[in-house]
Design a protein around this nucleic acid. Structure first.
Lengths: 149, 149
DNA sequence: ACGGTAATATCAGACCTCGGACATGATATC
DNA sequence: GATATCATGTCCGAGGTCTGATATTACCGT
């Protein structure tokens, strides 16, 4: 056979590109999250938007996009899929004719309650064997990267 | 107006879900990377695969999938797009009739040379104002998450 | 030699994500 | 009041990522 490194090794160990490690870590966590939510028919972004809309009822699609740091198009896809599955409802704004206000349905609230528990369990695994000061360092770094620093 | 948190704030500050922070950090970095490579017609995953194939010529699509921790289908999409743009070439394996071996073209090598510099500049920004021991903590955490721990 | 198992490539469908484009409605400027 | 500007929602296209499914080819045990 050819001499090829092991899966996950090569340039992908702790010495590789940080951007590469970041992408793989995010993909791996996303996989776990979606597997944990698959029987609920929820994806990770849908869980995220559902959480947000529950916390702040009446958001518009554009609001969701801004809060999620997503584009309006992307937010729209997620919102449409959540609406299709009956987790949320959209009604035209009373005053501003063009705005569609988003509300969580009872079905959506029930879904979120179950999903939240599972995600929090996964969250715990992320910091299981890590001292609090290290977790603080990781959080600070992630926020810094997200903000573009 | 309604009382709605600022973009990037709310549950998304340093106190929010780690999984959420991870997803946003990865998305933000990916955006920066793709903007840096956009005039080359390369995406972040394409850069990644191109780097890998350059390091280990003759890989098959299945090899790339294993090394990247991706599914063969996903790897195929990236490889097909790289082939379409002329950065790589696929030739049937001399012995194993079904395997398609991947090679970097001269065009691809030139592309990679330019792209690598830009990505390394971005890499530097990721650790700019961070002491080495913190970087080590972050790297260790990312690898742990990617490995499913 | 044969038949089962594994590996490879690939098709189809779904979702997330972006950039570009456009129409409509709200607001500000003159 | 007319016009410019901006916000909103939405359509289209491209790329990446997954599951599920299928055809072909290589390998191996009997």
């Amino acid at each position: 056979m050819r001499k090829v490194p092991e899966a996950g090794e090569g340039k992908r160990g702790e010495g590789g590109y940080l951007g590469y490690l970041l992408r793989q870590a995010a993909a791996a966590y996303r996989n776990r999250a979606e597997r944990a939510l698959s029987d609920l028919g929820l994806t990770q972004p849908q869980f995220s938007v559902l959480t947000m809309v529950t916390a702040y009822p009446g958001l518009s699609n554009a609001d969701v996009a801004r809060l999620s740091l997503l584009t309006p198009q992307t937010a729209n896809v997620i919102v449409v899929n959540l609406e299709k599955s009956g987790a949320i409802r959209r009604t035209p704004h009373a005053v501003h004719g063009r705005i569609q206000q988003i509300e969580v349905t009872e079905h959506g609230a029930a879904l979120l309650a179950v999903a939240r528990e599972r995600i929090q369990a996964l969250e715990g695994e992320l910091t299981d064997d890590m001292p609090p000061d290290e977790e603080r360092i990781v959080r600070k770094w992630l926020v810094g990267v997200a903000e573009g620093g």
